[in-house]
């Protein structure tokens, strides 16, 4: 039997406790960020102080796991130093890679830290081989996180034309837009994941029980009304219910989550190097459960055993899952 390609499991951690949980559950690599606007999960009470990051990297390395630090927002004019300093700190702490999106920050990091491994964030929206080859040639990027808009066939086609690793999302929340190019949150709140690190920032979210319904408002706009007993979605505009002409419903996207466990063999055969679990905003309990489940799936795949899928539906937004764009069908 031909040896099956090894896949790296890249897992989220919003807190040091979640990082420890991910390592103990079998993560090969953990991605996390500092507690400021330099990363796209800048939520209250979440993320790592400088001291916590240094300790976390030591902890992970001591157990054979890597730490990839996301610095994947786009620096504000006049505040570039904040992002540049964050890269310096990652290099100083011994991070295994930094995950970047901004061209200026990539250039700055490649020039000042030639030994620091650079990954291209999904926020850079690199969705074709030419773009990826440019990032590899210009900045020495070693891995690209692909946007969640590509089919397995498109991923395989890209991998045939590039010499860097690709990483794809395997489980968790979905974005309907190509990441890095979505401004829906800005329209309602003035803040976006691209610049401020938070889609639908909690400071602009309001939930209220009204007449037996759960009302969700973002920046004062009612975006969802859920009857008792129905699953509640995240308060993002893309998962809101709106009227458009005669249609009333989910105009952008149904509130479902990605679960591509069943596609692990196809993704491996398409040349993917790493599988990423979404969810730095989730708890340690979620992180541990999902990581353990996917580590078992990868071990099963490597050993030629059938992969169990669909066991994590209760943890997902909308309590429903989809294989997303990986397997596109007409409807």
């Amino acid at each position: 039997m031909t040896a099956r390609p090894g896949l790296e499991l890249v897992c989220p951690a919003g807190t040091p406790a979640a990082l420890r949980g991910a390592v103990e559950a079998g993560a090969h690599a953990i991605y996390c960020g500092f507690n400021d606007e330099t990363n796209a999960r800048n939520f209250p009470g979440l993320n790592f102080s400088r001291d916590e990051m240094a300790e976390a990297i030591k902890f992970a390395h001591g157990r054979g796991a890597k730490v990839l630090v996301a610095l994947n927002t786009f620096p504000r004019a006049g505040a570039f130093w904040r992002w540049s300093k964050a890269v310096d700190d990652c290099a100083r702490f011994g991070a295994d890679a930094v995950i970047l999106a901004d061209l200026g920050l990539l250039e700055d990091s490649a020039r000042r830290h030639p030994d620091l491994r650079l990954h291209l964030s999904v926020q850079a929206a690199a969705a074709n081989a030419d773009t990826i080859n440019f990032y590899a040639r210009a900045f020495g990027v070693k891995r690209v996180v692909l946007p969640r808009v590509l089919t397995v066939q498109e991923i395989a086609a890209i991998n045939r034309e590039i010499d860097v690793e690709t990483e794809v999302f395997i489980f968790g929340g979905l974005c309907v837009m190509t990441e890095g190019r979505c401004s829906l949150s800005s329209y309602a709140t003035g803040k976006s994941p691209n610049m401020n690190g938070a889609c639908s920032p909690a400071s602009h979210v309001e939930y209220r029980e009204e007449g037996g319904y759960l009302m969700s408002r973002l920046g004062g706009f009612a975006i969802h009304r859920v009857a008792a007993g129905q699953p509640a979605p995240y308060p993002t505009l893309c998962k809101g219910v709106f009227e458009a002409g005669d249609y009333k419903g989910y105009v952008f996207e149904d509130p479902v989550s990605l679960d591509a466990a069943a596609l692990i063999p196809q993704l491996a055969e398409a040349g993917v190097a790493a599988l990423k679990i979404e969810g730095r905003q989730r708890s340690r309990a979620y992180t541990e459960a999902v990581v353990r489940n996917f580590r078992r799936a990868l071990d099963d795949y490597a050993a030629g055993r059938p992969i169990a899928a669909g066991e994590l539906r209760a943890l997902t937004e909308g309590q429903q899952t989809t294989s997303g764009a990986y397997r596109k069908t007409w409807r």
Partner: peptide
């Protein structure tokens, strides 16, 4: 929250911060 077993109202930012602080 998704399954509606938990209800949150009022200052969502404060709830998130408390949840993350306790979790860690």
């Amino acid at each position: 929250f998704f399954s509606r077993d938990l209800v949150i109202e009022g200052d969502t930012e404060a709830v998130l911060a408390l949840r993350n602080a306790i979790d860690n």
